[in-house]
Amino acid sequence: MNNKHVAVIGGGIAGMEAASVLARQGLKVTLIEKQANTGGKLNDWDHLFPDFSSPDELVSSLATKTKDSGVNTVYNTEISRIERAGKRFELRANQDVRFYADAVLVASGFNVFDATIKEEYGYGLFGNVITSVDFEKRMKKHGQLRTIQGTAPKRVAIIHCVGSRDAKVGNTYCSKVCCITGIKQAIEISEMLPDCEVFCFYMDLRLYGSTFDSLYLQAQKRHKIQFIRGRLSEAAERADKSIQIKAEDTLQGRPLRMTVDMVILLVGMEPGASTSQLIQKNQMTVDENGFLKSTNMHCARNQSTQEGIFMAGTAICPMAVNETIENARSAATEIIHFFENHRP
């Protein structure tokens, strides 16, 4: 097994974790990252739910593990195609670079939903409508939240399910991590700006983690965050650049109108842009949502429909950071079993 070579596509947390586990088992591993550094989207993230920890520590410890375990990391290289070449796989990248591997792990991640498609929410049109991703980037860069006029917001609305559970944009699935992200960001705003009122507009609160409900309770009790069950119908800018939003207060059964200084859209996860390229010329397929399909939901989550190609992380479905790491380890185990069962 020691002479086998595994190519891992994507140097985010899933790719890094899986690559280091495989390398520690003695396999030759090449980690291929399209950008100049590893860590993926977490590099832009300020704090993680539910413990408000910094992702920087996680990313740097994964980078150390990857390096120390002997993984060969290649940067600025984007794989455009995986093809079967005899018993091996040929991976083609930009500038005619090719890799050959005995097994491939696709950890190409997800795309953030483009909120400009949800035109009625005014993202890209009104300066005070931002996304949850923008919030993290701003917090990381400036450590504060300001309106476009430069003032501290007095009232913020956080909108759940933007680009998720919405047939109008073609995504009927739940992105799973947004509800708890919204609660985390609401608490952060409230701690930073104690005078600021924060409202969460939700359809259902989907708090799947064992500690997430206590965060919800804390948000209500300690931070007075108000949860309004109703989906936003539209956002419009007022003369003073504040945003007028409309929703139904579904528990009251009445339409509701509110002026807020800022709107934060909890944007969902979509299948990665590279997924459609990668599935060409091989038998990998996607599921009903466009994410990579597993051969079995329960016992072969990391096995693609093409033998020898495996998957890890959010290329499979929306998942949180801790689940992604676990999922990457499980993918590494699957690959090791694959080699053990296919002795030449």
Binding site: T116, I117, E119, V169, G170, N289, G290
Partner: peptide, 11 residues
């Protein structure tokens, strides 16, 4: 699955 509508009405 093809998205049902991803038309940008503004254009």
């Amino acid at each position: 699955m093809e998205p049902k509508t991803k038309i940008r009405w503004s254009e």
